[in-house]
Design a protein around this nucleic acid. Sequence first.
DNA 1: CAATATGTAGAACCTGGTTCTATATTTCAA
DNA 2: TTGAAATATAGAACCAGGTTCTACATATTG
Lengths: 107, 107
Amino acid sequence: MARTRAYKSDVKAAIHETAQDLHKAGLIEKHTMRRFDESCLTPIKTFTADEIRALREREQVSQTVFAMYLNVTKDSVSQWERGDKRPAGPACKLLSIVAEKGLSAIA
Amino acid sequence: MARTRAYKSDVKAAIHETAQDLHKAGLIEKHTMRRFDESCLTPIKTFTADEIRALREREQVSQTVFAMYLNVTKDSVSQWERGDKRPAGPACKLLSIVAEKGLSAIA
DNA sequence: CAATATGTAGAACCTGGTTCTATATTTCAA
DNA sequence: TTGAAATATAGAACCAGGTTCTACATATTG
């Protein structure tokens, strides 16, 4: 292992690193390592308008500040929360991270 | 402070939490807190095709696995690396996080 | 009061992200 | 060695996400 971590939330990261090191050492095959990657990825949620709003309010920030964290415009956040538009792939990933680890995880 | 962290990379998160707590305590105004948020956000890079490829290869994963982490299709990653398309706002945010903290930060 | 922050609303535009197929090369297990 | 699977390129077509703009309404604050 290249690094060790104290937090249990980083178990998945550790699994990935372990698999990578095992691969480098020639102990496991590439396709096996990919299975590790698949299994240790956090599942992506599909957020409703209300869930997005609740998430933002949980973090106690305005739409503008929330948008800054996600690197989108404030209008986009507003549209998400009104159900006008729905966040795409990368946006959902960021929202999932925030939902699980809080805004500070993507500061 | 609600939590304390040991790593210096979380200084910005700490600033945010501190500002938030100061606001709750009525010691600073909302607009002042927003300035804190602005200043503690990691600047977003604009990635060239080559930089994206270099970033992925640094993490030693295939386009497919890289795509899984970012919650986009493998085709999108391929298009980025060939300069066919360019990552949008949320995608750039994710790439910036990976560039700074590694793939495990968005596992 | 005046200025700022916050959020809604809607329209128009552009391009990112998806999906599909086809091709070529490499990797690895049987 | 053979064949399946992984990897990556290429291009086309489509949809909708994200942006930008304006206008309006309501707090909030100095």
